Computed example of a mutant assay.
Amino acid sequence: MNCITNFMKRATTIFVFMLSVCAVAYAQQHPCFEVTIDQLQKHDDCVDIAYKVTIHTSEVSDCESVLLDFYLEKNEHKIDFKPILVNGQSRNRTYKRGVALHNLQRNYANADVISATDPDTEIVYTDCIPHEEWMNGSVLYVKQAVWGCGSQLTEKIFALKTLTVPPMKLVDPVVTVVEIVPEPQPQPRVKNGVAYLEFPVGRSVLDLSIGKNLQEWNKIIGEIRQIEKDEDARIISVEIIGYASPEGTYALNERLSRERAKALSNQILLFGNLSLSPDLVRSSSVAEDWDGLVKLLEERPLPYQHEIMRIIENIGIFDGREKAIMELAHGNVYRTLLKEYFPKLRRTEYRITYMGK
Rank of each mutant, 00 (worst) to 15 (best):
N314A: 12
G320M: 08
M326W: 05
D291S: 15
R310S: 15
D289M: 03
K295H: 14
V333L: 10
D289V: 03
D319G: 05
Y304I: 00
G320F: 05
I325G: 03
L297K: 03
L328Y: 10
I312F: 01
I325R: 02
L296C: 08
E298Q: 15
G292E: 01
H330L: 15
L297C: 05
V286I: 11
L296G: 08
A324G: 11
G331V: 04
P303S: 14
T336F: 04
L302Q: 05
E299W: 04
N332S: 13
G320H: 08
Q305K: 14
R335P: 00
E322M: 14
Y341K: 13
Y304N: 02
L293S: 11
R321D: 11
K339V: 02
F318W: 08
V333Q: 13
H330V: 12
E313V: 01
A329T: 05
L328D: 06
M326K: 15
W290N: 12
M309T: 02
K323H: 12
L302W: 03
E327L: 10
L328T: 09
A287P: 08
E313A: 11
P303I: 00
I315R: 01
L297M: 10
G316I: 03
Q305R: 11
G331W: 03
V294M: 00
H330T: 14
L337Q: 11
W290R: 07
I315Y: 09
H330W: 10
R310M: 09
D289E: 08
Y304M: 09
L297D: 02
I315V: 13
L337S: 08
L296A: 15
L328Q: 07
A329L: 15
L338D: 07
H330F: 14
R310W: 14
M309W: 05
D319P: 00
Y334S: 06
I312K: 06
Q305E: 07
E340D: 14
W290M: 09
G320P: 03
E322F: 13
L328K: 09
K295S: 15
P303K: 04
I325C: 11
G292Y: 12
K323N: 14
N314E: 13
P301G: 10
G292N: 13
F318K: 14
Y304G: 06
L338Y: 00
R335F: 02
M309D: 04
M326D: 15
V333M: 09
V294W: 00
G292A: 15
D289T: 12
A324I: 02
R321V: 02
V286W: 01
Y334E: 07
